[in-house]
Design a binder for these strands. Structure first.
Length: 196
DNA sequence: AAGCGGATCGTCT
DNA sequence: GACGATCCGCTTG
């Protein structure tokens, strides 16, 4: 099937990978492959931008004020997807990390599309390959990720329709900057980008 | 090339 | 009732 090229060479990222602290997991996810099964097709892309959020200690994090109905996934075991709705319009994808009970997570901000580009372009309503999955909202649109569909999905499960793979790609230079679009704790350097 | 504001609604106070 | 971990199109220079 379509995803064979990217996924056959590698393996699912193991469950233990996600038990670490958010900054380490955010760095570690750079260069890995996000894979979304949509009907019979796999849509895949290399993760090139992430941000770390540190649970209740982090004023910018959704988990800061404590557990609510929306952010419940963050307080559960790691490796589960936290999908939330923002600005009345966009979905954003996170992966919970840290042990059960701690609410750290990593926001997946951008992909370099690898497979299923035609479907992504159709879902995005654009043919601009550079912008297919660059940005958290665009990424979710390109991969048809919503709260109803993917919130709580286990990205380390072979049965899941949302998975993260390691194909052996070696990440190059990593650029570190402040996180985007937040007002609180805007000085902290928790955004990670893979240099082109 | 960069800056501005509108769209649009779930979530929490 | 206010605001947000965004995106896009329109304006200006």
């Amino acid at each position: 099937m379509a995803a064979k090229r990217a996924m056959a060479a590698g393996k699912l990222l193991p469950r233990r990978f996600y038990a670490g602290a958010p900054d380490g997991v955010a760095r570690g996810l750079l260069g890995k492959i996000l894979a979304r099964r949509l009907n019979r097709e796999w849509l895949t892309g290399r993760i090139v931008e992430t941000e770390a959020y540190f649970g209740q200690d982090d004023p910018a994090a959704h988990a800061h004020a404590g557990r609510t109905a929306r952010n419940a996934v963050l307080f559960g075991p790691p490796r589960h997807a936290y999908v939330y709705f923002i600005y009345g319009m966009h979905w954003c994808l996170n992966v919970a990390c840290e042990p059960d009970g701690q609410a750290g997570c990593v926001l997946i901000r951008a992909l370099e599309p690898l497979e299923g580009l035609d479907t992504m372009a159709r879902l995005r309503g654009t043919a601009n390959r550079m912008l297919l999955a660059a940005g958290p909202g665009r990424l979710c649109r390109a991969l048809a990720i919503t709260r109803e569909g993917q919130n709580g999905a286990d990205v380390a499960s072979a049965e899941s329709e949302l998975q993260i793979w390691d194909d052996g790609y070696l990440a190059g230079r990593v650029k570190v900057t402040p996180r985007i679009g937040i007002r609180k704790a805007a000085d902290r350097l928790h955004r990670y980008l893979l240099e082109a």
